[in-house]
């Protein structure tokens, strides 16, 4: 909720935002209605990816930036396919 409320207020002030939430909080994306939301199918507290999983973290951040650069419809909500690391870090 906090991130969505902050996004709304920044947008009103003229700052373009993109939020990243875990999929479990998709309902907040639809109720708080921030302008651009990326959902990741991750567990709580690992929104961007597993510790040390640079490939997944990069994928998430780049997808969020793409949403920021290209979305044209208010409350665009996009979900990334699953991809949380399940093997030990190499």
């Amino acid at each position: 909720m906090s991130v969505g409320h902050t996004a709304r207020i920044l947008e009103e002030a003229g700052i373009a935002t993109v939020c990243v939430y875990i999929r479990a909080f998709a309902h907040l994306a639809h109720r708080i209605k921030p302008p651009r939301v990326l959902l990741t199918r991750h567990i709580l507290g690992r929104t961007i990816g597993a510790p040390g999983d640079i490939a997944r973290q990069t994928e998430v951040v780049e997808a969020a930036l793409e949403l920021l650069a290209t979305a044209t419809t208010p409350n665009t909500v996009r979900e990334l396919p699953a991809g949380y690391r399940t093997a030990p870090a190499s």
Binding site: S2, I15, T47
Partner: peptide, 17 residues
Amino acid sequence: WAQMLIERGVDAALLVG
């Protein structure tokens, strides 16, 4: 926060829950 970001010339923000 919004006012401060504007004063600091921020155009866009990535917010992470």
